[in-house]
């Protein structure tokens, strides 16, 4: 089966400086892919580039191919005209942003906003529209009456459900969810994630879930891609990556998660700050913060297969055993 989404060599630059610097990614139909990494590493930029929604000051290059079910010709996102893109957006790929933020127009009723999106892509009588909107709202666990409400009259969780209903309005084959649970409390987070999972199973959606919360990603996704400074440094099945990370950055990220039942104390932070993707350090991008670096790290490593369907961009991968590091030594390693 050919992949639903294929991203090859995606670069996004601002004034010639890269923000996303060579992202390669494939996504099977119905698959859930996690996109993880610190803020500013290019997760959201990658997502927006997939829909060609970046502001005009950013330039994107690379090949993005979309093969939705029932569409004979693969869609080449990069070569579409703007008008052509408008037909692809929402019909094939939709987007969910942070819930409590202003993802909905505050001065329009929810139902009207749902109707607007549907009408853009389908012909529907007003009776059909009303029925569709009621059905959509019920799918995400809301009553049809919510359609008559304004966004501010809803709670953060309800608003996020409306946003998910909106994302499903045109039955897309891919939903990109950018930090969909960040602004919600823990109970709401769990509910929204369960909803996303249920819908994915029922509707056969593919999902790209962007978050810096590894716990959230582990629960929801099949595969995980870890981004660092504008690149994917490790990609593989969630189980495999969590059990045996093959890039030092992933390893340190996982170590920074607090373990329930463990000794109390602050989680191990990764020393230093990520470089700006536009001004990467020479050699391996993670080298200045890497406690495991060696001589070979002078050369920028390519991402390569290090296990079954598991890739990492580290010269020393696959790691049989991670050397012990003291937190303080890690800090010195960063300075060296």
């Amino acid at each position: 089966m050919s992949p639903l989404l294929e991203i090859e060599g995606l670069r996004v630059t601002h004034d010639g400086k890269p923000i996303v610097d060579g992202v390669d990614l494939t996504l099977e139909p119905g698959e859930a892919l996690a996109l993880a990494g610190e803020s500013g590493c290019g997760k959201t930029t990658t997502a927006l580039a997939t829909m060609r929604l970046l502001p005009p000051s950013l330039e994107q290059s690379g090949v993005i191919t979309l093969r939705p079910e029932g569409v004979a010709e693969p869609i080449n996102i990069g070569r579409r005209t703007e008008t052509g893109m408008r037909l692809v957006r929402w019909r094939h790929i939709s987007l969910v942003f942070q819930g409590a933020m202003n993802s909905l127009d505050p001065v329009q009723r929810v139902g009207r906003q749902l109707a607007e999106a549907i009408r853009l892509h389908e012909r529907a009588s007003s009776a059909e529209l009303a029925a569709r909107i009621a059905e959509l709202l019920e799918t995400v666990g809301l009553t049809a009456g919510v359609g008559d409400r304004y966004p501010h009259e809803l709670s953060g969780g309800q608003r996020q459900r409306v946003m998910i209903a909106l994302a499903l309005a045109c039955r897309p084959s891919l939903v990109i969810a950018d930090e969909p649970t960040t602004a919600l409390d823990v109970v709401m987070q769990a509910q929204v994630l369960q909803l996303l999972e249920r819908l994915r199973e029922e509707l056969g959606l593919a999902l790209i879930l962007i978050s810096h919360d590894l716990g959230v990603l582990a629960e929801t996704c099949d595969r995980i891609a870890v981004m660092y400074a504008g690149r994917i440094v490790e990609i593989g099945a969630v189980d495999g990556v969590f059990a045996a990370p093959q890039h030092p950055y992933t390893k340190l990220l996982l170590d920074s998660l607090p373990v329930i039942g463990d000794e109390r104390g602050l989680a191990a932070a990764i020393p230093g700050a990520p470089p700006h993707p536009g001004e990467p350090p020479p050699g391996c991008r993670f080298r200045p913060r890497c406690p495991f670096s060696g001589d070979r790290c002078d050369v920028d490593p390519d991402r390569r297969e290090v296990g079954p369907r598991h890739e990492a961009a580290c010269h020393y991968a696959p790691w049989e055993r991670w050397p012990e590091i003291e937190p303080a030594a890690a800090g010195e390693g960063g300075a060296a």
Partner: peptide, 8 residues
């Protein structure tokens, strides 16, 4: 951005 993403 969301409105743009819907295809408007």
């Amino acid at each position: 951005t969301v409105k743009r993403a819907t295809g408007l």
